[in-house]
């Protein structure tokens, strides 16, 4: 600050002064670990010992023949698939319904978006309790005469993944709804008017006006939901830890078990890299679509 503001050095140092705090923290705690995870994935490091050998692609070869990895991989896709169906499908319908309502809209929208701000850890606690064999979900099923469907939701191999995906969707669908709502506001009102004049009913105008107009927004929500659901760790870890056995094991929980709990750091890093590649690619596609939209 004691330099002459017109000097060359001052002009060169000013951007450094503004950028340095962000860049320094970002390089050390985000970029460096990203490079490290790739590097570690080529080693047999156990996370503690000073000894660390480069073993080439051995961890990746092991991934390919690791049955549990593929189970986790498959589960992650099923998990994402369920969440996409709910958040994109039902999210779109909810937004379209909300857009047609004026009175009470804010209250209803608040109720739908509210769970988005609840911590995944709290979401896990709530749903773990509701899914208990004697929990709320089964109590309700009994009360409305559907007791035959009652099941220990988180203890049963066939439903645990779907039950958790549903809980996750409960806490994230609000985000899809508000993105869809923003998209709906941009749809030309005249199109609905024209459809009405042509004698279209509500369902037809949804099918022939809303859906085509929302195609780009739908793509955005789709990719967004995909990347978000691939990154999930908290809710699965805090409910089943991937169990029973491995029926709800997803990539993040498997990586955590191998890398952090079983000291197979190098191998865990290889799982992390596979997650990194999938999420980065999906995010790149997301940003591409967004960019095209803004132009």
């Amino acid at each position: 600050m004691f330099l002459d503001p017109e000097s060359k050095l001052y002009k060169q140092l000013t951007p450094v002064f503004f950028l340095l705090p962000a860049i320094a923290i970002y390089m050390v705690f985000a970029i460096y670990p990203t490079i490290s995870v790739i590097e570690y994935s080529f080693t047999d490091w156990n996370g503690i010992s000073p000894e660390r050998n480069y073993i080439g692609l051995a961890n990746y070869e092991r991934l390919f023949s690791d049955r549990i990895f593929w189970e986790a991989f498959r589960n992650t896709f099923v998990w994402s698939g369920v969440i996409i169906v709910i958040n994109v499908g039902i999210g779109l319908v909810l937004a379209a319904m909300l857009a047609r309502v004026w009175r009470a809209r804010l209250i209803i929208q608040t109720a739908i978006v509210l769970p988005v701000v609840i911590s995944p850890m709290a979401v896990a606690t709530i749903w773990r309790w509701m899914y208990q064999p004697t929990g709320v979900v089964n109590q309700v099923l009994e009360a409305i005469g559907l007791g035959g469907f009652a099941t220990p939701w988180l203890g049963s191999p066939d439903v645990v993944l779907y039950a958790l995906a549903f809980a996750h969707s409960w806490s994230t669908i609000g985000l899809s709804v508000i993105i869809f709502l923003a998209g709906l506001q941009a749809v030309d009102e005249d199109l609905y008017e024209a459809a009405r004049v042509d004698g279209a009913n509500a369902l037809q105008s949804f099918r022939f006006v809303t859906l085509p107009a929302l195609r780009p927004v739908t793509a955005v929500v789709f990719i967004l939901t995909l990347t978000q659901s691939f990154k999930v760790f908290d809710i699965v870890w805090a409910t089943t830890q991937g169990g029973p056995i491995r029926f709800s094991e997803i990539l993040s929980t498997y990586m955590y078990k191998r890398g952090a709990l079983e000291n197979e750091y190098g191998y865990g890093a290889a799982i992390g890299v596979s997650l990194l590649v999938i999420v980065s690619l999906a995010t790149l596609i997301y940003m591409q679509i967004q960019n095209r939209e803004e132009r």
Binding site: V28, T34, V37, T227, S252, Y265, G272, V273, L276, T283
Partner: peptide, 24 residues
């Protein structure tokens, strides 16, 4: 610098948690 920050949007915390822990 812009590209550098753009990369940050693509990094999932979950994937880099192990080396991040080591550094800290």
């Amino acid at each position: 610098i812009q590209i550098l920050f753009l990369i940050g949007l693509m990094i999932p915390v979950t994937a880099i948690i192990l080396p991040l822990y080591s550094i800290i």
